[in-house]
Write a protein that binds this DNA or RNA. Structure first.
Length: 152
DNA sequence: GCCAACGTTGGC
DNA sequence: GCCAACGTTGGC
């Protein structure tokens, strides 16, 4: 079992939006970065733990616990000309972008960046590293356990 | 294959 | 709105 941190802008899909969806499950649309795509395609397994993270908002941080709910499959928005995620260069027979379904298990308090940064056990958390922009990052088991403890 | 220019992310 | 950091593009 692996663990991940997945960023979402709450103005697009918040943890509340995800909880309101059928089975509290949303397709993780819009990933347009090869490294993040490859994590979904090559490393994610159904059941992997996910930290649901809000970015580009007033209080960025972890806001929920989720799980990977599907294997990777083509992101339909890449073929939709009206979508901001449309990619004219991607072909249906050879999709460039994939997604997984993510199921929210519970909403938590907001565990914000200052609190994450202040924790000695979380110093190496990938998302805290300077300049990190990846929307999906792996989370070490010890970091996952520490964050769950902070949220308990 | 190099690398400058450009676009995007995302915290502040 | 600013800007640092990073990824992508495209000319050569």
């Amino acid at each position: 079992m692996n663990y991940w941190l997945m960023k979402s802008e709450p103005a697009e899909v918040s943890v509340d939006d995800a909880l309101a969806a059928p089975a509290a499950t949303v397709p993780w649309t819009g990933v347009r970065n090869y490294q993040a795509r490859n994590f979904m395609r090559d490393a994610m397994r159904v059941g992997d733990g996910v930290l649901f993270y809000h970015s580009s908002c007033a209080e960025p941080g972890v806001v929920g616990i989720a799980r990977v709910a599907s294997t990777a499959y083509p992101d339909p928005t890449q073929f939709d000309p009206s979508s901001p995620y449309h990619d004219a260069a991607s072909k249906r027979e050879e999709p460039r972008w994939l997604l997984v379904d993510v199921q929210v298990l519970r909403k938590t308090r907001t565990l914000g960046l200052p609190e994450l940064r202040a924790d000695p056990q979380l110093q190496d958390l990938v998302v805290l590293k300077k300049g990190n922009r990846l929307s999906i990052t792996p989370v070490e088991a010890r970091h996952w356990q520490r964050i769950l403890a902070l949220l308990a």
